[in-house]
Design a protein around this nucleic acid. Sequence first.
DNA 1: CGATAATACTTAGCTTGCTAAGCGAACCGC
DNA 2: GCGGTTCGCTTAGCAAGCTAAGTATTATCG
Lengths: 178, 178
Amino acid sequence: MTTRKPAASAKSRTGAKSAGKAVDFPIVESVGYQIRATHRALQRVLLLKIEPYGITLGMWYFLRALWHEDGLTQRELSNRAGTMEPTTLSAILIMEKRGLVRRVRDKADRRKWHIHLTARGRTLKARLIPLARGVVDMAVQNLSPEEVARLLEGLAEVQKSLHASLGRLDKTSAKAAE
Amino acid sequence: MTTRKPAASAKSRTGAKSAGKAVDFPIVESVGYQIRATHRALQRVLLLKIEPYGITLGMWYFLRALWHEDGLTQRELSNRAGTMEPTTLSAILIMEKRGLVRRVRDKADRRKWHIHLTARGRTLKARLIPLARGVVDMAVQNLSPEEVARLLEGLAEVQKSLHASLGRLDKTSAKAAE
DNA sequence: CGATAATACTTAGCTTGCTAAGCGAACCGC
DNA sequence: GCGGTTCGCTTAGCAAGCTAAGTATTATCG
């Protein structure tokens, strides 16, 4: 039962950067690997904290968005949470079933649904936001505020490059751009 | 069809840090949100690069581990890749089906299986490692080597804190710890 | 006005990852 | 030397996310 932790003990950075000449690319030094590992560790801890309240990770970022701005449409929610529409939809349906949100059709444009928090959904904010903040604070406890800021900037830069690259790849394969 | 990108345009950092007094916790400033977004962007780009070779993300970290050290057992592979055994198993079975690896039972301990690359699996290394390195290099192109090192250190610190916290949480709920 | 295009959501089906629980092989203590 | 425990893998089933391809509804243009 022993709760295994697959960690990786990220040591030995900046070591043999170009030592292995051709095809050696130590996994532990890879930004990709570390991002993935950090993401999963964070998910795991957050889930442990929020699941006692009946909230899953799948709902989390949508609730965050709704607490900040109620009545969003599904597309707006997708954009806020950074997910595709089908992902958003299934999360909404589950949240609706659990009585956290209500779907209301737009009067003017009947294609749209507005997602509104119920009283129950709204109430959770006061409990869960501090809890989430606690997780993040714990996660960065050994970093100074400047280091955290640099970490966020680094991540933002990486995302910018990746999105730019994605744009290029899309255009290449689409070909019929405009 | 338009290949939507849910981005998020991470602007406005360091803005209203402690403005919202109590329960305002801007999602964009959260390390958790940014880690998740970066992870997904990275995955997407990597997938686009490797799928022409018939490799999926599910196989990727296992191949990485095997290229570095062939003949690992499933548990060893799980530890190297940072996944749980069932995840490892299903990836192995798929890779076996695609002719990338072979499973060989341990003579001495018949519980164990050793996973060996086939010639086909081994050959891919020379093509895919440079490709992956290209993705990572592209992703960090706007960061100096020092900034990349700091990013990795930051991620490692965050993971360390998270794993420590996980250990505590486990012990709490297990209670019967020796 | 009517045909066509665009928009907003939905459905179907897949992938990657997990936990919980099972099964056979090896080990350990008496 | 065999009964219980541990170990390594397996099975079952679920969660979160995606793409591709629908279905309605609204907007647009001749």
